[in-house]
Simulated assay, not measured.
Amino acid sequence: MQNGLFSSESVSEGHPDKLADRISDRILDAFLAKDPQARVACETLLADQCVIVAGEFKTRRIEDFHAVRESADSLVRSVLRDTGYRDAQTGISPEQCEIQIRFNGQSQDISQGVDRADGVLGAGDQGLMFGYATDETPELMPAPIVFAHRLVRRQSELRKSGLLPWLQPDAKSQVTFRYVDGRPTCIEVVVLSTQHDDGIGLDELRDAVQTHVIEPVIPEELRAESLRTLINPTGRFVTGGPKGDAGLTGRKIIVDTYGGSAPHGGGAFSGKDPSKVDRSAAYMARFLARQIVARGWAKRALVQLAYAIGVAEPVSFVVETYGTESESGRNITAQLAREFDLRPQGIIETLNLQRPIYYPTAAYGHFGRSDLKLPWESAV
C-alpha cells in the first residue's frame, strides 16, 4: 500500500476457528513432548456442543501414540476451560460437550517421502510459503495487524482480570490505517465486536469498550481526526463460540500471518509438525525476511520458498525488497542461501522446532510476538 486505506483483522482465542487451532496445536505439543520426531497432522472441528479431533500421526514408539490418543479427550476439555468457556449457553461446556477422537496412522506413501531411505528429510508436502518483514513497527510487522492483535488481546486481558466481568471469550477486531507514501500515518476506523453477558446494556458495553479497550490500545497520535469506532455494530453478541458458529482448524491463516499485507501460500500452521513445510518453511521465510530488515539491508522484505513433496532442496527461493534496499549491489538471495540451510532438516535445526512450543502461537498471531521467545523472531 502506497497511498490509501488498508485494513487487517484479528480474532480472540475464544473465536471458534481459533479454538480449533488451539486444540490442534495442543495435541501437537503433546506428541512432541513424548517424541520430538513425531509426525502430526491434526485437524479439529467444533460445532455447538461437539468437538471432533482427527488426523494422521506417527511416533517411533506405538506406546506414545496410544498415550496421546487416550489423553486427547482431557486435553480438549482443558483447552476449552483455559479459553474461558464454562457452559453451553455462552459457547460450549467443557464438562458436558461431546468429544470424538479419530486418530489414524500416517500414510506410508507420505512417510516414505519424508523419512527417506538415504536418511535425508524430505519436505512433508509440496507448496509455497511466504515470509514478510517491514520497518513500519518495532515488531517488524505491518501496523494494521499489530493493532488488530492488540485490541483482542486487551479484550482477553480485561475478561480474565475481572475488570469487565460481563465479557465473554469470543471477539473480533479490525483496524484500518491510512498510508501516505508507503508509510502508515493514522488510524481511520476501528471495529471491535465482543461477546458479552445477556444482562449488559448496549450503551454501557460500548462506553466500557471504548474506555477500557480502544483508548488504551490506540495512541492519540495515531487517531485520525475523523476516527470511527464501531463497537458491536450488530447491537448484540451473546451467543458465541461454537454455539454461535462452527470452528475449523486453519481458517484464520491471514490472522495468523501478516493481515493481508503480504501474499500467503495457502497452507495453515496449526496441528502440523515441523516436517510439514507449510509451517516450518513459513517460519523460516519470516526469519529470513526479518534478518533482511533487522540487518538494515532493506526497509521491507518478502521471501518466498517452495518445495516438492519428498524433496529436500527448495524448488525456488526468492527475495523481493520493493526497491527499499540500502545497498544496490548486494545479492540478498545468494547471501542468505549461503548462510542458511533451507532444506527441511536444516530449517528444523536452525530454528530448533522439534519442541512443544506451538500451543501459545495458535492465538494472536505467529509473528511479531514479544510475549513469546519464538526462534523465528530472533535476529542473528
Results as ranks from 00 to 15, higher is better:
residue 206 R to T: 00
residue 192 L to S: 03
residue 203 D to L: 12
residue 260 G to W: 09
residue 315 V to T: 15
residue 290 R to V: 00
residue 314 P to A: 00
residue 300 R to A: 01
residue 260 G to D: 05
residue 232 N to P: 07
residue 220 E to Q: 13
residue 232 N to F: 11
residue 250 G to R: 07
residue 262 A to F: 08
residue 256 D to T: 11
residue 189 V to D: 14
residue 232 N to T: 11
residue 248 L to N: 13
residue 206 R to A: 02
residue 252 K to H: 12
residue 226 S to F: 04
residue 287 F to N: 00
residue 200 I to L: 10
residue 233 P to R: 08
residue 302 L to R: 14
residue 196 H to W: 04
residue 297 W to P: 01
residue 199 G to V: 03
residue 211 T to P: 00
residue 272 K to R: 13
residue 315 V to H: 03
residue 190 V to E: 01
residue 276 K to E: 00
residue 205 L to K: 09
residue 300 R to E: 08
residue 190 V to S: 07
residue 192 L to F: 15
residue 293 V to L: 01
residue 239 T to P: 00
residue 299 K to P: 00
residue 199 G to Q: 10
residue 295 R to A: 08
residue 285 A to W: 13
residue 235 G to D: 01
residue 295 R to G: 06
residue 213 V to N: 05
residue 215 E to D: 13
residue 287 F to H: 13
residue 281 A to L: 04
residue 213 V to C: 13
residue 226 S to R: 14
residue 202 L to C: 05
residue 235 G to I: 04
residue 268 A to M: 11
residue 257 T to G: 12
residue 189 V to G: 02
residue 205 L to I: 02
residue 255 V to E: 07
residue 192 L to W: 03
residue 190 V to K: 05
residue 200 I to N: 04
residue 191 V to I: 14
residue 242 P to A: 05
residue 275 S to H: 13
residue 237 F to Q: 09
residue 264 H to R: 12
residue 272 K to C: 04
residue 219 P to F: 01
residue 228 R to E: 08
residue 310 G to I: 03
residue 269 F to S: 06
residue 204 E to I: 06
residue 229 T to W: 05
residue 240 G to Q: 10
residue 302 L to W: 07
residue 204 E to H: 14
residue 249 T to E: 03
residue 278 D to M: 14
residue 211 T to M: 09
residue 303 V to N: 03
residue 307 Y to H: 04
residue 226 S to C: 03
residue 265 G to L: 09
residue 256 D to N: 09
residue 194 T to C: 13
residue 218 I to Q: 02
residue 235 G to V: 04
residue 195 Q to K: 15
residue 231 I to K: 12
residue 310 G to T: 02
residue 267 G to K: 12
residue 317 F to T: 02
residue 192 L to N: 03
residue 269 F to N: 01
residue 208 A to S: 15
residue 239 T to C: 10
residue 304 Q to H: 12
residue 290 R to L: 00
residue 301 A to F: 02
residue 228 R to K: 15
residue 272 K to L: 03
residue 312 A to T: 09
residue 199 G to L: 08
residue 209 V to I: 15
residue 213 V to Y: 09
residue 202 L to H: 10
residue 306 A to P: 00
residue 251 R to V: 00
residue 275 S to L: 02
residue 283 Y to M: 07
residue 271 G to A: 09
residue 280 S to T: 05
residue 304 Q to R: 13
residue 225 E to V: 04
residue 202 L to V: 14
residue 218 I to R: 01
residue 215 E to L: 10
residue 248 L to D: 06
residue 271 G to C: 08
residue 202 L to E: 12
residue 275 S to W: 07
residue 316 S to A: 15
residue 252 K to R: 14
residue 252 K to W: 05
residue 255 V to M: 07
residue 265 G to I: 13
residue 248 L to E: 07
residue 259 G to K: 14
residue 240 G to V: 11
residue 253 I to T: 11
residue 192 L to R: 02
residue 195 Q to N: 08
residue 276 K to G: 01
residue 195 Q to D: 03
residue 220 E to C: 01
residue 273 D to W: 11
residue 214 I to Y: 02
residue 273 D to T: 09
